[in-house]
Design a protein around this nucleic acid. Structure first.
Lengths: 197, 197
DNA sequence: TCGTCCAATATGAACAGTCGTCTTGCTCTT
DNA sequence: AAGAGCAAGACGACTGTTCATATTGGACGA
């Protein structure tokens, strides 16, 4: 078969539609049309809309540049900052719309599809592990003090970012991102000791 | 007049359905049935599904206990902690499902309905102002040091909480909440000076 | 090199059901 | 009797899904 790419066309179109319209508002018909294939064809490649969404989430996760978080040739805090700067710039490009597909699905369908919730959780888990890795490096180099627990803080960073995405969309502004960067990098993740008042 | 309560019945049912199923997945028929009124009656009271959702958001905002954040008889940091503990307990009750209606709508429909986005933004704005008030008090009493900008930090707290809700739903666990509390109250909001390493 | 055939894939019409919305006529209150 | 408020069902458009048919690429025999 020559057109191995048709499945890919569908998945790519689905990433876009799910991302911009959400799970329920994105129709199979929309996705098929965006992919340039007839509606019925989608079901040759995917058992259901849910099954398609699972593949979409997998693919989306691979575009999150988690690799750069473990690049030891860059200082840990710089890695972290650049990572979130990349994500912020992506949002700014779209005029503070769309947000993160994992987060969107987490809010919309996590309660109603066990399969999708599993994939969302998996995506978040990989992400927080990558963040924790960079944080661990930062603790080791002394860039942040040793009272910071990498795993806990990774989950917090991930949460904070996901929330900032929602806030940024609601206000159509970069303010929540600015708040994220200053709170995280100027206060939360700093070297030095703390003394009681 | 018992009639007067029918509109309220519809709104209350709508809050529940929108909260548990999301905007698109919650149907007018579901809402009407949950309210115990025929489907057609909904349109006697509301111009459209969107108009109903606007009223729902308004009502939901009033249940967020923003008042307690400005209760000066309680220490500012205690106020903040209790506020988020209340929200956390609410989530725990529902087995880490549902999340926050404002955040859910922010992720699902903020990009596609200007009216709803406005209301969501309004809700977040009121909330962050209430948080900022408590933070301002905390700075004044010296419970957090004066380098903390109340407005910026309020937005960050709000974002972090909303993200924690999504993460908690995806993992069906309290871990993101724990991460929130320890990162915020043990690291971000602490009194005392910071010294370079 | 060609012709034949098969299994895999592609298709689009049709399915039963649901969506948000609107119209029509009825039931009450005054 | 006049009026407003309400309910019931119908509206067309759309949903995710199915299926019988059409089309196809490559394998194989000659």
């Amino acid at each position: 078969m020559a057109r191995r790419s048709m499945r890919e066309e569908i998945v790519n179109a689905a990433v876009d539609r799910f991302h911009t319209h959400g799970y329920n508002a994105a129709g199979i018909k929309d996705i098929a049309e965006a992919a340039g294939v007839p509606k019925g064809s989608v079901y040759n490649h995917f058992e259901s809309k849910e099954a398609l969404a699972l593949v979409v989430l997998e693919l989306y996760g691979e575009t999150r540049r988690l690799g750069e978080l473990s690049d030891r040739s860059v200082e840990p805090l710089v890695r972290l900052r650049r990572h979130f700067e990349f994500l912020r710039d992506e949002q700014e490009q779209y005029g503070f719309t769309r947000g993160c597909l994992l987060g969107n699905f987490g809010a919309e369908v996590a309660d109603h599809s066990m399969a999708l919730r599993g994939k969302i959780h998996e995506g978040f888990d990989q992400w927080s592990h990558a963040l924790a890795g960079a944080l661990r490096d930062a603790v080791m180099t002394g860039d942040v003090d040793s009272t910071v627990d990498p795993d806990t803080t990774a989950i917090f960073l991930l949460s904070s970012w996901e929330g900032a995405l929602v806030a940024a969309r609601s206000s159509r502004s970069a303010k929540p991102f600015d708040a994220f960067f200053s709170s995280v990098f100027d206060r939360l993740l700093v070297p030095g000791l703390r003394e009681p008042a």
